[in-house]
Nucleic acid binder design. Sequence first.
DNA 1: AACGGTCTCAACCGCGGATGG
DNA 2: CCCATCCGCGGTTGAGACCGT
Length: 333
Amino acid sequence: MGRAPCCDKTKVKRGPWSPEEDSKLRGYIEKYGNGGNWISFPLKAGLRRCGKSCRLRWLNYLRPNIKHGDFSEEEDRIIFSLFAAIGSRWSIIAAHLPGRTDNDIKNYWNTKLRKRLLSSSSSPHSSSSMPSPFVNPISQDVKRPLTTIAPSSYNPYVVSPTKAPISTINGFETDDHQIFPFVNPNYLQDLSLSESNNNNNNNNFSGSSGFSLNHNMCDHYSNHNSFSSDVSGNRSEIMMKQEEIMMLMMIDNHIDQRTKGYNGDFTQGYYSNYINGHGDLKQMISGTGTNSNINMGGSGSESASSSSSISNLAENKISGSLLQHKCLPYFYS
DNA sequence: AACGGTCTCAACCGCGGATGG
DNA sequence: CCCATCCGCGGTTGAGACCGT
């Protein structure tokens, strides 16, 4: 049994609003407000519309101080940062952009920003002024799934005990030189970050500063069982959950900002708590919640001994920045 | 000019959560 | 607690605008 509709669809007008309807809606709200109840609002205001439709029209279009028109670069930057931190929480993102509605931002993301993000990932030297965290110097030298793959169709844990080369797995073709991001929601567990100087771990992708990208996926592919060997010159491929790659975006972005003297607060404590499973990733990145005040100095043997590794990453960006390594994330959807 | 494909964005839909009786 | 109602959100749709041929 489905949910009861909020109103009788046969008795209300649908589709675009006329200037007369707009005027009625605006006039009534300016005079009386919505009366605390959108459902009964149309009757009171003399509109043959669904209450939800009235609410939407008011909030997204008629309400005062709504900003229409192009987004600024600063707004782009804020959207990128917040999306990286919290995902598609459009209402929260909108709260950081006065005059913009969640619907506006959602549309803008879906039609413009996401495409820019994708094109930046396939363009090794993007000239775009927006953050380009997906820029990958070897992006022309990778394979991708040819078409959208259902998440369940790709499961190396079940299908691939023989460690087949990644290029033979569903959808990959050797000669495919394009990149297309997908999101695979299945493999959150396959990736984590840590700060370590242990380069002997085959499941680590180690930057020169001792920063490690731990991944279990490589267990499943004999030709990718060691990222450290791959980064010495050959391509690496890795499956990542969207949230994970967004985290890397944030890291790279913050490292970027640090190199420019930005007074960033995204430092080691966040990593440590993330990799130790102590905190909520979103809270850590967005700086909210109980993990927002984690001290950055580091404590305990591991973090104390590597307290400067994030700084090292910043200072040795060419060798240290994750996304400049030949480690390409694939997205699945 | 005509046509078809693509893009944009206002509007819709249905769900989850909050609230109050 | 349970249930009904409403609100707010995020995903999706589709009409019209735009663009390339």
